[in-house]
Amino acid sequence: MALVTTTEKLPVATRSGADQPRRGFRWRRALWVGGFLLPAVALIVVLLVVPFLVTAYRSLFDDNGVSSRFIGLANYVALFTDPDFGRSLLNTVFWVIGTLVLPVLLGLLIAVLTNSVRWGSVARTVVVIPYALSGSATALLWTFLLQSDGAINQTLASIGLGGLQQEWLLHWPLNTVVMILATTWQATGASMILFLVGLQTIPPETLEAAKLDGATGFRLFWSIIVPQLRPMTIVVVGMSIVNSLKTFDIVWLLTRGGPGTASETLALTMYRETFTLSRYGYGAAVSVVLTIVVLAASWLYLRRQATQR
């Protein structure tokens, strides 16, 4: 405020004098903008940046939760030479691809197909209901279905298809695939809702114009609807990438990352090393790698999309 008062008193005849009020205005504007940004930035710094730096610092120690000693980058060396870490990374990539292809694509298709049909709302409700369930309830349900003596195998046996019975959760990569399917069952509703919102923002005139030009069916979908849904697709795909990189709850509850470490994702490896094995330094190293992967993937994706727009 003192700065503003001073500039108001300055003469405006010279060129440099003319710049003064403008600079003052800029300062005032910067202060206002800074003031509005401060709470959000402070929250991010306190709740995200500081914990990340503390975790990164902790990853340089051999720490059992009671005592610790500095070991430099040894945790990272151990991590990258650990075959279990490679499997965990591979599973995480499976999750990213699986949840990009299935829930996003299915969500888009269901949204488009049910948007303007008569009983569409019923179909949409059916798809959305699983999304309302908590992760643990979903896992409980799928455990009941997928266990070796679970509902799916019992049903197959009772209808004479015993030959198709599988130990669904016990063999890799089948266990990862069925868990991705279980997640698809739950997550499709969320992407469908977002795509529905996107569909409603498409101007009817655009669609009418396309129809007048003779575009129907797949042509209308591919050439008009999909490009118009682009902003929403960026959001849905971005969220899907980040969520799949963080996959934890359903794997933890269905297989605990096992058998062995066969179905572990990076988030599970981090949990096991930190809380089961009490290797806090090693667990911190995994979480640093996971954070870098998530940030890099999000940044690359959003940067690319923003440039294209």
Partner: peptide, 17 residues
């Protein structure tokens, strides 16, 4: 030692499959 046991138990779990 706990870390040894936890890892070996996971190996045994995988063996049971």
């Amino acid at each position: 030692p706990p870390v040894l046991i936890e890892g070996n138990v996971q190996d045994l779990s995988a063996f049971m499959i």
